[in-house]
Design a protein around this nucleic acid. Structure first.
Lengths: 237, 237
DNA sequence: GCGCAAATAATCGTATACAATTTGACCGCA
DNA sequence: TGCGGTCAAATTGTATACGATTATTTGCGC
């Protein structure tokens, strides 16, 4: 049983309704970076971990591959996705393209209670930034994505929401691979500024802030090809 | 063997590489409207049709459910998706949100040969409009979507391309359900106008045309709840 | 000691088998 | 005739089994 095994086990109830449980568990593990890009996820191992047959494990991995979080190679197995620099650029290009539109939709139909909910999320987020420890770090990662997802949910379009879920999750992978600073939320409270702009009905400004926010995250990346991921390049400096 | 069976069989080579073959075949059948929304796709039937086991049939149906073309209900089976009016609105809202951005990306990096390719598609499309017969009609449906997909491909963003593939396919389902006129391509050659605008480097105009084009398609729909799909409402007029 | 080939082990691809759930029918009864 | 319940058929959910492909290791010759 490899390192992936220890990283996964979260609760002890193995199979409740089906393969979705497993899919969600693995997805969380990937997004929270308990599973590193490139980690092998063999069907047998996954099945044993959750005490289900390979059939269900396979279904879960299959599902994750549709979301771009896992790449399955024919006759070789499934691996936590290892997005190329080009893929990373495409992910952020997609976010720059989509998120302003979502923001506009969301702003148009947002209620005061939803604004309050957003502020709640922001508070939680900054609280986590203050704390230290692995679990706090993981929660922070998730929280920073949850803000964008909350906006998508407010927009009321389930399809766009699903697209955003995929993009945010894959972004987490990209940051894990190419991120330089400890975490993207550097200094400024950009999420907070966006909420303020929404509240002030300054839509154009909110969109600007959003685009720049995404650009900032991307600017923190070092998008250079890492060939063997620690092969020879790791030693000859 | 029900009506779904006759609608599916397209080639006689049953299983070549795996479940993807089946998924693609069924997807084509749905998009080309050989399969009507609501049609039951039982795992055994699909498997028998393609001479594979239920395992592969199930995988294919599962995949299609991720694309929103098939809805699987626990312990009840898989059905060709029957999008609700609200879902339909969300699909077109998503397209209005996404396609202008794709158009801008595409216009920025389009080459002369790609423009030629687009014009080729347009020619093919108008040729099909002229012809008559079921097969021509089906080809026309596919062609009208292919224009939007070609644009997405030119944009160079594989992720957005995949999103568009899903949206176009689901649009086909919506039109099959709620469309009023024989087909959306009414009179005007809106696709052609968009290409011309791109060629003339009039980006804003091209985006405007695109948004209106999508609005026109949506305007041709009669988005009213058909509850039982022909239940009581079908009789008391 | 080193490289190459063949055997071995591990893993995936697909099919089949069995259990669980749902659906529809049949039958008795008010 | 209409209603409720029990049973049977059909279909899905999950597990297991077997064949195919790929990776690894062993062993041999050099």
């Amino acid at each position: 049983m490899n390192s992936a095994a220890t990283a996964l086990q979260t609760t002890d109830e193995p199979s409740e309704t089906g393969a979705q449980q497993i899919r969600d568990a693995i997805r969380d593990a990937i997004v929270e970076r308990r599973l590193s890009p490139g980690t092998k996820l063999s069907e047998s191992d996954v099945g044993n971990l959750f005490n289900v047959s390979r059939t269900l494990a396979r279904a879960a991995l299959q599902a994750l591959s549709y979301e771009g979080l896992v790449s399955v190679e024919k006759n070789r197995g499934a691996f936590v996705a290892y997005p190329s620099p080009d893929e990373a650029r495409q992910i952020f290009a997609a976010r720059r393209l989509i998120e302003p539109g979502i923001l506009r939709e969301a702003a148009a139909r947002i209620t005061t209670s939803e604004i309050q909910h957003l502020r709640q999320l922001l508070l939680e987020e900054s609280r986590l930034i203050g704390e230290r420890g692995q679990t706090a770090r993981r929660a922070e990662i998730k929280a920073s994505g949850d803000f964008h997802l909350a906006l998508a949910e407010i927009s009321g379009n389930a399809i766009m929401q699903r697209f955003m879920e995929e993009l945010v999750a894959r972004s987490s992978l990209v940051i894990a691979l190419y991120g330089q600073s400890t975490i993207s939320s550097c200094g400024h409270n950009e999420h907070g500024d966006i909420v303020s702009a929404i509240e002030a009905k300054k839509l154009d400004r909110a969109c600007d802030l959003m685009v720049h926010h995404i650009a900032h995250i991307e600017a923190d990346l070092d998008l250079r090809e890492r060939k063997g991921q620690g092969l020879k390049e790791a030693f000859d400096l």
